[in-house]
Design a protein around this nucleic acid. Structure first.
Length: 279
DNA sequence: AGCATCACCTGGCTGC
DNA sequence: TGCAGCCAGGTGATGC
């Protein structure tokens, strides 16, 4: 599932190929990908526009256009953004919902089996050029930094489990289920602990672990799970999954204390953690 | 207001 | 082996 490191890896790939390219042809084939505006509106605001440098906040990609609009893309659960230098060479994969032909003959394709992913073009922007609705997002640990004081402030007054807070995009932007579990393990905090019970040292450990783990995962180009759903822009798998300490490792010994990793349920969600060294 | 739960969706897995 | 049914999980809507 694409989280901050996977989306950042895709953004870096886009940065290599997209700036200066013109969208010469835009084809919306899926029914659900473009849903907050009509597909024809998206096509008309995207077609013939030149891309600027791609940006990202949390799990959202923000692709600036020379018209002043921004193309926002969210991969959600199963979205893949693929770049084909020579599109004639490859047949379209099933579940290809959007195709953008670029002016050098290359193509950007959006493949998304579960159709949760979303594209829209907006001109409602903040002074920093990002979509106004990004105001809802909390700080992005990579783009904005995440100090202990800032995390403490973001958690203040909330009465939810630590994992629920870390994955709440209004609190911090970019963390999903996988990295929340890894961050909690690194910080020795149980994901089902209530945030109001956290001490300063634990909040500090969570802030430091968040930045460290997300940065390391970007270096390894994200996590590709067993279903191999996540690939980067060129179709290459990430490798951070080999460094997961707890996620999807129920029954395996904890690398830190040797106790068996457990899969715990809290509310309607699950989390992987080590009860031997996380409290 | 703020927290909890549900709906959305398909592929992969489990269990009979 | 085949197949029904469950589960995953980010976000926005709805319920409490």
């Amino acid at each position: 599932m694409p989280e901050l490191p996977e989306v950042e890896t895709v953004r870096r790939g886009l940065e290599e190929v997209l700036p200066g390219r013109r969208a010469s042809r835009v084809e919306v084939t899926g029914r659900r990908t473009v849903r907050r505006q009509s597909p024809s509106e998206l096509v008309s605001r995207l077609q013939r526009r030149r891309f600027r440098r791609p940006d990202r906040r949390g799990k959202y990609l923000a692709l600036g256009l020379d018209s002043g609009d921004v193309l926002v893309i969210h991969l959600r659960m199963s979205g893949q953004l693929l770049y084909l230098p020579e599109p004639s060479a490859g047949a379209r994969l099933p579940h290809t919902h959007v195709v953008v032909g670029l002016d050098d003959g290359s193509e950007l394709r959006f493949v998304d089996p579960r159709t949760f992913g979303e594209w829209f073009v907006t001109g409602d922007l903040r002074p920093d050029g990002l979509p106004a609705e990004f105001d809802r997002l909390g700080p992005d640990p990579l783009a904005d930094g995440l100090s202990t004081a800032l995390l403490r402030e973001r958690l203040l007054g909330r009465k939810v489990a630590v994992k629920a807070a870390l994955t709440d995009q209004r609190v911090i932007a970019g963390i999903g289920s996988i990295y929340a579990d890894e961050i909690c393990h690194a910080a020795r905090v149980r994901p089902d602990r209530r945030v109001e019970t956290l001490g300063m040292a634990e909040t500090r450990a969570l802030a430091l672990s968040s930045s460290r783990i997300l940065r390391a995962a970007v270096v390894h180009r994200g996590s590709s799970l067993k279903d191999e759903r996540y690939v980067d822009l060129m179709g290459t798998l990430g490798s951070y999954q080999t460094r997961h300490r707890v996620y999807d490792r129920a029954g395996e010994p904890c690398a830190r204390c040797g106790a068996a990793i457990e899969r715990v349920r809290f509310g309607a969600r699950t989390a992987y953690c080590c009860l031997g060294c996380q409290s």
